[in-house]
Amino acid sequence: MKKTKTKAAASHSRKSTKAARAKVTLPDLKLAQGADGLRQAIKVLRDSSETLQRRAEALRILQSASFGEEEFDDVRADYVAALRELTGDKEIALRQRALGLLARSRDTYAEKILMDGLQDPDKAVVPASDALHYLSYNLHSGVQSLARSIFDTSKDQAVRQQALRLMANDPQALKTIQKTLADKKESVEVRQTSAEALHALDPKALQNWASKVVLDKSENEEVVATSLTALNHFGDEKQITGNTALRKRLAEMSTGKSSAKVKRMAKTISTKYSL
């Protein structure tokens, strides 16, 4: 009991020290109250001669005020205008924050900048994976066709994974997703993201694939674990209990040479469906 208390006290003390350090390092913008203070913050944010820390703090203040403060309505249009300006700022951190915030509100100006950057890397103001991530906030932005094309051509795994996440909303990408999932040459991460995408588009197809993977002894263990997770959470009881080969394989996995993770998953499924 005493030990627990000591641990908790130590943890609390560490947290307090961290918070105190953070407070010390945060710049004091000396803002006025109400809408005037918000206008001052916008001025700091726009001023490229200010330090990154001061501008980032101004952005944090404005962002939190945008959620509820009544006086924010007076400056909302100026705030959006400032964010749009930031999309061309010299500081990538500010560009990323501004584009993320604008994209969340489906700002067509920001979406155009992001799309242009994806089509022409010379115009890109943020990395392609970020651009795809921001554009994913609006499934109507039309980015899906670009995502398909980027997925086919890019060699950057992070970018391809991000593209796959967007393709999860796109029925036209179904075949590509299934092909990627079946391709053992693809990286495990890309195949796992494909499995998520397939679940979103065609849950039954994912179940069929998962059953096949479990039966395939040459399959990667991580991919097998993903399939077992899919069967465990979204599996159709009748299909699983009626599949003799699958039942047999699950029994083998529970006791055989499989990794601890696979064994645990196989046992969970066997218990869940009383196999």
């Binding site: 994806l118 039309g142 980015v143 066709s145 670009l146 094309s149 051509t153």
Partner: peptide, 9 residues
């Protein structure tokens, strides 16, 4: 990069 987006633009 040729895509539906380029055509639509």
């Amino acid at each position: 990069m040729s895509s539906s987006i380029t055509q639509s633009e």
